[in-house]
Design a protein around this nucleic acid. Sequence first.
DNA 1: GACTTGTTATATCATTCCGATACATCATTC
DNA 2: GAATGATGTATCGGAATGATATAACAAGTC
Lengths: 187, 187
Amino acid sequence: MKKSAVFDLAILGLLQESPLHGYELRKRLSALMGAFRAISYGSLYPALRALAEAGYISETGDKTAPGPALSSKRARITYSLTKLGANYLKELLQDSGPDAWEDEGFGVRFAFFAHTEEVVRQRILEGRRSRLAERSSQLKKSLANARDRIDQYTLELHRHGLEGVENELRWIEGLIAAENKTQRTGS
Amino acid sequence: MKKSAVFDLAILGLLQESPLHGYELRKRLSALMGAFRAISYGSLYPALRALAEAGYISETGDKTAPGPALSSKRARITYSLTKLGANYLKELLQDSGPDAWEDEGFGVRFAFFAHTEEVVRQRILEGRRSRLAERSSQLKKSLANARDRIDQYTLELHRHGLEGVENELRWIEGLIAAENKTQRTGS
DNA sequence: GACTTGTTATATCATTCCGATACATCATTC
DNA sequence: GAATGATGTATCGGAATGATATAACAAGTC
């Protein structure tokens, strides 16, 4: 029943900036996720339909074209955010729970930080920081334990994994510092 | 029909070292994937069953216990690699195609590098290197284009993504250099 | 002894999600 | 004019997840 809220957020957030059709939406979505894999149409179109049914977005396009002239232009459905959808988006942007700082969700949330309240931003960054710190200490422990028992290659793989986590941790800490500075200065 | 071969490889590779039961296997599998998410039992058990049916692994355990004494010990099925499975594993370890250097597969392949031939190792590393180089240049281009058009936060997200890719690229290049050195020195 | 809590262990199922594919229009290049 | 490739909407089978059920056992606690 409760589908991926992050997904909805990404769609609504992109539509907030400007109305888009599915193809373009997918491209932006993929860009948003960055290095991650692109989402498929098999996920996108059903999600759009669900959002439309819920009244959060509206479809306008040549699909429901006035009868005769449907062959003149290419079928192309433009989705735009409704007022109801804008409210829902605002609500989603308030959330600072685990979904917001776990791996799948964080990138999307961060991308919309410009539309997120200062307090919420800080909570999310702090949540992510503590998540990464926990993972880092786990990896360190596991590395220390395994040091002698395991394969050189596996060891190197884990070492590199730890390095990546610590890199992101430093990044987050820099962001938190920047947020605090901005706050004190008053934007 | 052709399920995830990487998955099979990971299971067979772990069972090669020692026979294991499902629960322990899952833990090792998760550790192997490192920071990535753990695979679920809903994937593991069907996969084990399929491998058993194919004759690559054998199940031995108290499940098929001698009738009366089945309540004495906890049900626990131990899986071990068969000769057929060992051959199949060897075959899988020969592969140096795209599956071996894409994101999902590379980590697993690398973890079993100790059981992989020198030539294959080099091909896989080179494949990964070129994959990462391509991604890096794409990201750079996209960053240069977007510089002025997009959000500060989104920009920072992409910048950090690029940083991560370049980090891994340097790591891979270091590994390639190390392999070459080892090869020239003769192990 | 009875109780909770936590770990080990196997198993299934609905929902979700992806990859492939099909179809069609338009722009470009040769 | 015809091939190629980008744009665009849409669906389907199969695969994977997340949640959940069940159960034996261990360790502590009251």
